[in-house]
């Protein structure tokens, strides 16, 4: 249990620290580089058309499974010691909301990534996809992970 009461007192927005812009950026770069490298190998094996479809599906499954897991951590987030949690209850977001968060990323990307930069101005450091899925990204020092992916 977190010292900030993750999983307790449902209904209130979780207090405590939030993951910083720089840390989240590096985590996203790690995931991006990894997924791109795997995608290139897949495209080499399956060809560009089928490879792109499989690459997209793999990326989607990667995000939904890992961000929806109890740890809320992709490989990049695990490397940077941050995780995604429910903004209200503090617990895991589950695969459904992880999928919603993925769709929210598209909304964040469309106006020149404005939805990502929004966290620089937000008191809760939420991007648009965090707001859409009602999530927070927090450091594991304040919200420890029991097991990965959990």
């Amino acid at each position: 249990m977190s010292e900030y009461g993750a999983g307790a007192g449902g209904g209130s927005v979780q207090s405590g620290p939030r993951a910083s812009f720089g840390i989240r950026l590096v985590a996203a770069l790690i995931d991006g580089v990894m997924l791109t490298a795997v995608g290139l190998v897949i495209q080499l094996i399956l060809g560009r058309a089928l490879g792109s479809v499989v690459q997209f599906a793999l990326g989607l499954a990667y995000i939904i499974y890992l961000e929806g897991s109890p740890s809320g951590q992709t490989v990049g987030k695990r490397a940077m010691n941050i995780r995604v949690i429910d903004a209200n209850g503090g617990g895991p977001i589950g695969p459904g909301r992880a999928a919603l968060r993925y769709v929210g990323r598209i909304a964040s990307t469309i106006p020149c990534l404005l939805g990502y930069f929004w966290m620089l101005w937000d008191s809760e450091k939420q991007t648009w996809h965090d707001k859409i899925a009602t999530t927070l990204v927090v450091p594991t020092s304040a919200y420890p992970v029991a097991a990965w992916p959990g």
Partner: peptide, 12 residues
């Protein structure tokens, strides 16, 4: 009012 963390803005 919004509390903006200037450290994040400096990094970005």
């Amino acid at each position: 009012r919004t509390t903006v963390e200037l450290g994040d803005l400096r990094v970005a």
